[in-house]
Amino acid sequence: MLYLIFTLAAVIVVIAAIYLNRFGDVISKKSSLSGAIVGTFLIAGATSLPELTTSLTAVFIDNPDIAVGNMLGSNVFNLLILAAVDIYYRKRRLFQRINHKENIPSAVVGLVFLAILISAMLIPGSQSLFNVGLEMLVIVGIYIVAVKVISNSEEEEQAPLAKDYSLRTGVIGFIVAAFIVFLAGSALSISGDRLANATGMDASFIGSFLIAASTSLPELVTVIAAFKLANYNMAIGSILGSNLFNMQLLVITDVLYREGPILAAVGTSHLFTALLGIMMTLIMIYLLVRPQASAARSQWRYATPSLIITVLYFVVTFALY
């Protein structure tokens, strides 16, 4: 029965995420918001709802390893999604078809967030305010500034809509799809957590990889759907934005975890997951700043950075667990 619930929830999440992206595309083209902005904040927030539910549940059952591992694991898995899509569609050269200036800030801020978390985990006796780590307050402050900077970026040219929806229909459809993602994603997370617990695996591994992969399913569908709509900025923005949003959800998790700073209560394996995120993000930044001429030769030479990201993910996962 548990397997049936997990599978059914996954299917519903996939369908809802497709409509989430479709109506997000309508909003980006019928309003003053660019595809990168819609992807970075609007869609990213909605597709991160399963991560929020999972981490809050982990806090409720007093399992901080699952809560933190879910967020960090989702971030690295999200980058793996982007790399895998880039490899699969290497003929289209995804990173050569985007407005780089709109996506570089999100990637850089994501890198800064991971560096802050690593520093907090390495420094013993983390400082806190009302049982919340000071590093979390810094992350919130940087995010607020990043929202303002990214929102002031230029609006790119938009491709025509596949179907003509009004802005009102797009907004209503987006809200409904986001609500369905929240419900189905919650069921996906909870059933996945129970399936993982039944195997007796370590909580850090469960949170960082099994649950993280499950809750990242909406991001996978969103990227593929955005790619098929030729809204490449939204495809990349949804992933980079989801990673930024996940860090804000980690802040909420720390606020609700009343035993002290949550990073002080987790295992050391999360440090390696964060370091993996640093390496993958650095390669992603290279893809965003790489001149087109350097990727103009063979398809596989173009896809080499994404291949490195993919190999890194599986090698580090195998080495840790």
Rank of each mutant, 00 (worst) to 15 (best):
I5W: 12
L8N: 02
A9E: 05
A10I: 08
I12D: 07
I12G: 07
Y19E: 13
R22T: 15
G24H: 00
V26I: 10
S28V: 09
K29I: 07
K29Q: 09
K29F: 04
K30W: 06
S31I: 04
S34Q: 03
G39N: 00
T40K: 00
L42A: 08
G45S: 07
A46Q: 01
T47P: 06
S48V: 08
S48A: 14
E51W: 00
L52C: 02
L52D: 01
T54P: 00
T54K: 09
T57R: 11
I61M: 03
P64V: 00
P64Y: 00
I66Y: 07
I66H: 04
I66V: 14
V68C: 03
G69E: 01
L72P: 02
G73A: 08
G73T: 06
V76K: 04
L80G: 07
I81M: 06
L82P: 01
Y88T: 14
Y89K: 11
R92C: 10
L94F: 04
I98G: 01
N99K: 14
H100W: 11
H100E: 12
N103W: 05
S106Q: 08
V109I: 15
G110A: 12
L111V: 05
A115M: 15
A120T: 09
A120Q: 07
M121W: 04
S128Y: 07
M136F: 15
L137Y: 15
I139T: 08
I139A: 03
V140K: 04
G141Y: 11
I142F: 11
V145N: 08
N152L: 11
E155L: 12
E157L: 13
P160Y: 03
L161R: 05
S166F: 10
S166T: 15
S166H: 07
R168L: 15
G170H: 10
G170D: 10
G170N: 10
V171P: 01
I172G: 10
F174I: 03
V176Q: 02
A177V: 05
F179K: 01
V181E: 03
A184S: 15
A187V: 11
S189L: 09
I190R: 07
G192I: 07
D193R: 13
R194H: 15
R194Y: 15
G200E: 02
A203V: 12
S204D: 09
S208K: 04
I211E: 00
I211Y: 01
A213M: 13
A213T: 12
T215W: 02
T215Q: 04
P218M: 14
P218S: 13
V221L: 08
T222C: 12
T222M: 09
V223R: 05
A226K: 02
N233D: 13
L240W: 03
N243F: 03
L244R: 05
M247Y: 07
L249H: 03
V251W: 12
T253K: 02
D254T: 07
V255S: 06
V255N: 05
V255H: 06
L256K: 08
Y257H: 08
Y257S: 01
Y257D: 01
G260W: 02
L263P: 00
L263V: 07
L263R: 05
A264N: 13
A265D: 12
S269G: 06
L271A: 05
F272V: 13
F272Y: 15
L276G: 03
T281F: 03
T281W: 04
Y286M: 09
A295L: 12
R297I: 12
S298I: 05
R301G: 15
A303G: 08
S306A: 14
I309F: 11
T310V: 14
Y313H: 06
V316S: 09
V316M: 10
